[in-house]
Design a protein around this nucleic acid. Sequence first.
DNA 1: GATGAATGAGATTTCATTCAT
DNA 2: AATGAATGAAATCTCATTCAT
Lengths: 198, 198, 198, 198
Amino acid sequence: MTDRSIAPADKRTRILDAAIRVFAEHGYHGARVGDIAEDAGVAHGLLYHYFASKDDVLRTIFLENWGALIARFRAVEAADEPAPEKLEGIAKILLRTWRNDPALVTVMVREVARSQQLQDRVDEVREAFAIVQRVIEEGQAAGDFRADLDPRLASWIFYGGLEEVLTGWVLGQLPDSEEDVGQAERVAVEIVFRGLAV
Amino acid sequence: MTDRSIAPADKRTRILDAAIRVFAEHGYHGARVGDIAEDAGVAHGLLYHYFASKDDVLRTIFLENWGALIARFRAVEAADEPAPEKLEGIAKILLRTWRNDPALVTVMVREVARSQQLQDRVDEVREAFAIVQRVIEEGQAAGDFRADLDPRLASWIFYGGLEEVLTGWVLGQLPDSEEDVGQAERVAVEIVFRGLAV
Amino acid sequence: MTDRSIAPADKRTRILDAAIRVFAEHGYHGARVGDIAEDAGVAHGLLYHYFASKDDVLRTIFLENWGALIARFRAVEAADEPAPEKLEGIAKILLRTWRNDPALVTVMVREVARSQQLQDRVDEVREAFAIVQRVIEEGQAAGDFRADLDPRLASWIFYGGLEEVLTGWVLGQLPDSEEDVGQAERVAVEIVFRGLAV
Amino acid sequence: MTDRSIAPADKRTRILDAAIRVFAEHGYHGARVGDIAEDAGVAHGLLYHYFASKDDVLRTIFLENWGALIARFRAVEAADEPAPEKLEGIAKILLRTWRNDPALVTVMVREVARSQQLQDRVDEVREAFAIVQRVIEEGQAAGDFRADLDPRLASWIFYGGLEEVLTGWVLGQLPDSEEDVGQAERVAVEIVFRGLAV
DNA sequence: GATGAATGAGATTTCATTCAT
DNA sequence: AATGAATGAAATCTCATTCAT
């Protein structure tokens, strides 16, 4: 979530930041450990001083950053607000992250979220969906949301809509100016709340 | 779209089918050319008789199958129906494909959709979004859909919601019985049409 | 020795001619059996009907053509002329062959003459040197040539000078117009006969 | 130019030396990267640490050693001697190199001199001929050499005669004892200077 | 902590050769 | 005779990881 373009910091952090940049640009498999080290300005051997493996670097990126995201989701969930506002809050967090750190989002969206293997990741991602699902259930219980729609499916669809917008930005196919991000937020929330129909 | 478990067919097709299976199971990078050949029951050299490279196999899978999907989308678009029915038709095609060919969907969702490189893919994918977008615009013009929402963003959100459901199935995190698929279809369409709000 | 640019003839000959062209252009190792077949306008499997292997094609090219050359050398050797004229005759044959069939000469010079392996070749090449050597010895015996120089070494040096000129033509580093070929002949013979010294 | 049979030295040099040995024995195409590494006593991967490819190894061998040869030629050219002595000096360098490093000569004569591609090589080889040519022209201007013979052709013929002797040694067809080398030198120079004719 | 030379498992790709038709 | 799909041995090259310094 920090500005990845300047790079003082300790070397572990520099490696992590470099990895995010390199993974974002070439994908996990296309990224060489040497590329990351070069980008970080360290010898590639050093990477193994801080991390167990290339995969561990990705795992660490995911864990540290997804954890932060989840924490913010949890804060929203715990807030004393109606469910619709909470859902809107979650959408905002997800989409605003893009503006702060596109490379990170690229990695999260492309490399991590889809990755089957590592149970770690799956568990953590599941937790995000669970929060959204609980918020929806809360809204249904409070009479704010329709009760005839399965909250689990609804949470996936909601999340998917937002992630696709992120993907559009990642692929450079959707405009992502400050204003566009705001509009995307509005459209996403509107669709999920009130639908396209007149 | 055919049953991938039996294997008469010509060898080129067998290789392609095997590749879909193997890519689905291990991912593109985790799949070895030898695995594909073995699964297809041919010598691995034959793969290079029909395809230029491993990457060309993936590209071919994408092109041939996405092309078929697009053709069906186009047919829906051209049909003499109101826009909402068309959107529903597209959702059905996308979600039903899963039941017909989970492995193919896995590959399309995991390996292709996210793959940056290859302009080929991007162009073709763009076309799918364009169709959805045109249908939405048609609905807006006909007064069936709200005109205050950007149709482009709406098309991405709509597609994303569906793709996430597919992903849930691919990852084994959402139930995917015949009945579940039908329900997912309904929920997705309902959310996008009428929204979660009461 | 035939004109390699037109190609009626039987298929065996077409394959041999194509091989000379392809070997000349890409070298033996750089030439694929498929290239030869394509150039000959036949299926590559047919090559194995006429020849035992790719190597056998090269061997055949060498044997058939080198044999013809040797035959002409022998004719010169047997002629009723003084040794100097014979040597001049050999030089002419060697250099004139270039104008008739550059591709063939390229293959002979680059692929065959240097190739260690095949004993066939070595034996045949040895025979050419032996002829030159005998002519020199004949000249020495007749008092036409100095007797203080080892005839064997002299034959190698003589042949080497000529072959280097061929190489210059093959590499496109020496001009090879009709006139240039004549001049090369004269210079080579002059040097070997009377030397550079005034 | 060093003794290739002992092997302390840094690993890059060991790889280069091993490559010369292996190329000499099996030819460039017959030599496997693994053979070179094994001969050098290193893992084959290390070869790629120092060189971009197998071809780059050959190119490096050529460039470094031909460069050294050229330097010696240049020194001879610059010396304050009559042209005939210079030509003799060049012949000596070329032929003596054989005794110092037969494997290197084998590679240079068989693999490099004939290799078309790579402009690098051609340029460097051209320079050697240019030196010989200039020496001949110098001799002609000084009245030491006949002026009626084209110096360029003469340089090729001179060089070719010497190279053929090297080839004879490489192929094991000419005797190459210390004494033979001396004789070859004398015969080559005699022929080119005074010719075979009485 | 830091470096980068060194390792070697492993993957893709090539292509001569075979053989059923 | 002719074809070209099919085979599979073999070779180059990559790159994550280790480790001596």
